[in-house]
Design a binder for these strands. Sequence first.
DNA 1: TATTTTTTTTAGATTAATCTAAAAAATAAA
DNA 2: TTTATTTTTTAGATTAATCTAAAAAAAATA
Lengths: 221, 221
Amino acid sequence: MSTIHSFTEENYLKAIYHLSTGNNSVVSTNQIAEITNTKAASVTDMLKKLAEKKLINYIKYQGVTLTEAGKNAAVNIVRKHRLWEVFLVEKLGFKWDEVHDIAEELEHINSESLINRLDDFLGNPAADPHGDPIPDRSGTIHQKKLVRISDMQQDQNGTISGVSEHSSVFLKLLEKMGLTLGTKIRVSELIEFDGSIILIVNDHADRTISREVAKNILVML
Amino acid sequence: MSTIHSFTEENYLKAIYHLSTGNNSVVSTNQIAEITNTKAASVTDMLKKLAEKKLINYIKYQGVTLTEAGKNAAVNIVRKHRLWEVFLVEKLGFKWDEVHDIAEELEHINSESLINRLDDFLGNPAADPHGDPIPDRSGTIHQKKLVRISDMQQDQNGTISGVSEHSSVFLKLLEKMGLTLGTKIRVSELIEFDGSIILIVNDHADRTISREVAKNILVML
DNA sequence: TATTTTTTTTAGATTAATCTAAAAAATAAA
DNA sequence: TTTATTTTTTAGATTAATCTAAAAAAAATA
């Protein structure tokens, strides 16, 4: 089934995967260097190796895309990462801002039966503690349609269902403001001056959030 | 607290720890090479490195012992390994002969809070699925006094509480014979011819086991 | 005790992943 | 369309962990 790749190769595949979501499917050497905390020269070496193994399509000076095999490998790592995050939060009681680094290690454990049993044990969750969808065992991702609060209209309602920023400071802030997953919100007012937004939270409390915060909270309408 | 060591260093420390139990506290280069699946030359290199880090006491040509720091590190790895084994069996439903290799990977995950939470989640188990004691968070090991079936007298009773052989073939054999942990046995007869032993299992079924098997089943009297 | 065998160490290479500094290619600006 | 800037690649080193083959030390045997 899935071939075994080194810890390092897996991290590069994951980096390329995360960088190639959305608009840009072609990823540059420098982008990869940045999120893997390495230098461009090191990335070039690894790209050659991954291309050799047919995990990426790589043309010198022109960036890379994942092949089917590479994408499968990457999705599998993401699946593992997110399932472990659910485990850490749901079963061990970690907070949502504490689990990333540990899951970063756990995602490299290699055992298909382990991860499928874990999946069942957790009740086959659809999303991780940050609302990111968990790929199923075939690699399919069922992503719900979410919109940023910053893109909502006045008086529109929704349920907080994800975040697009995973830093601990940001997550702690949301926690403190009571803006965690599942919270129902209503856009009460759009402040013209600086783009900040006043929300009605759970039908009573109101909270003002900056445009920057609003851009990183994802809502299901 | 506990300094971080490389994956490889951890495996050497664990190997030395396991080899230095019982009578021999001094461990030889060749012994280490054997259980780490490396060559003696590689071991020598690593021993220098571990001695440099004050994790072992090493005198050329004279074998090694663990320092306090080294022993602490090793015990911690053993603690992690055994807790993960409990998790795999108790929570994910793996069989006792399936968990070793996975735990071998999981034991290198570095997070004290993770392992302490896991410990609590599992109900602070005293032993792993093979009956081996789990060191507590201070590193103390509460080992119950166990005897091998091969050392029991005729008509003596006991409860199977551990094994000293962890191979899958052996564990599957015990499973098939109903000689799993917690099973009550009585030594019914000692066969002089080949040292094999007839057991009364749970007061009714009787099972004949070879001396080799009897040596590897540990019983609490 | 002298010799043989075994064990351990050293010497010198190899592989994976990384780096810095310099060269080459692509992109942006004048 | 040259020139300047940025990005990417190559060249050459470094570190960790490993290896084989040879040398040195220790242990076993005659």
